[in-house]
Design a protein around this nucleic acid. Sequence first.
DNA 1: AATTGACTATATCGGTTCGATATATAACAA
DNA 2: TTGTTATATATCGAACCGATATAGTCAATT
Lengths: 193, 193
Amino acid sequence: MDIRSLCLGALMAGDASGYEIRKMFEEGIFSYFQMASLGSIYPALTKLGQEGLVTFTAQEQENRPDKKVYSLTPEGRRTFLRTLFQTRPGEDRYRSDILFLLSFAHELPVELCEALIDEYSSRQEVMLEHIREAKCPTKSGPGPENTENPCQMAGPDFIGGLGEAVCKATLDFIDKNKESFLTELRNRRAGRP
Amino acid sequence: MDIRSLCLGALMAGDASGYEIRKMFEEGIFSYFQMASLGSIYPALTKLGQEGLVTFTAQEQENRPDKKVYSLTPEGRRTFLRTLFQTRPGEDRYRSDILFLLSFAHELPVELCEALIDEYSSRQEVMLEHIREAKCPTKSGPGPENTENPCQMAGPDFIGGLGEAVCKATLDFIDKNKESFLTELRNRRAGRP
DNA sequence: AATTGACTATATCGGTTCGATATATAACAA
DNA sequence: TTGTTATATATCGAACCGATATAGTCAATT
């Protein structure tokens, strides 16, 4: 997905400034499976404006830099929908420095390995919490359990549920295997001084 | 992780040509959590050579272009290990066109949504199979070594197990939720024609 | 009272990296 | 014959990230 489509997609949810679009990719709905930086968003918005796919209105603010609020034009909306239909989705890709480092566990001190695993865990926990906050915001309080299907599934809910399942599986795996992995590493270390 | 470290890491497993390094990132052990293209590997190897971190011997082959087999120098090995210790691991990132497309499910025909989910599933299945083949190898070749500890966890096994758990959780979630999701989409569609 | 740090907000630039392409050959299939 | 797949190196343009510059508000700490 090129950034221009990403920006159009972000604007499908409503008007937004470049800064707000970045937040959608950093903290919002898209943050789990796409990313875009300011360094690409601003040029993309400019170009999309030249092509007539978005427009903006500069909101003057007191003593603040103008906020350019972008909106999709009808043509922009059409273009994005065409993109949705025509795109042959590229392969998923997952990139993790921690797992790369851990793949050299046999070269590292056991304490460092444990720290890496704990870091990985805690990041997953943060993510899980984040996903849970984002979905079903209404009934956060008294519900004792997730009953059958209290929320109905739109795209984002389905994806959120998937993310939740993946995070839980990750945490569960680490919980069940971390100690034996570290023990194994220690044993090997003892075997050859 | 910059590509130079990635190349050094690949060479930790043994001597290899640029082409072979790419395969490690496309099909091999690293493919689940890192990637590197030929367009960056070759320049990186050249640079590493200039810095004395790798050397190569050109293997002449009959009627084929020479194969440059790179190896780590002692200095290269030291540099990589230092990197392992010092690197503050960057955030994991997952990128998925399919999930991005699916986040607009309400704008798409239900059939397309289903096709996207099925595509996602089948890719996960391929990946799961791939992980399972890689670990606990069924000994296709006459490899003399690496049978000493069949079921114990080194770094790659731990990561493989994690990948397996995640794939299974993904497939399981889709299996349990796909139909209700599609039904829900259809109902909404029927509600407003 | 003053400084620090965090947040909002736009914009640009350098450097890294991808993806496509060129070149060359072999093996195999249609 | 032609096409496709695989091995193998190499380069180049385009895309993109990350850092930085600018500039103001606000709250907290010193």
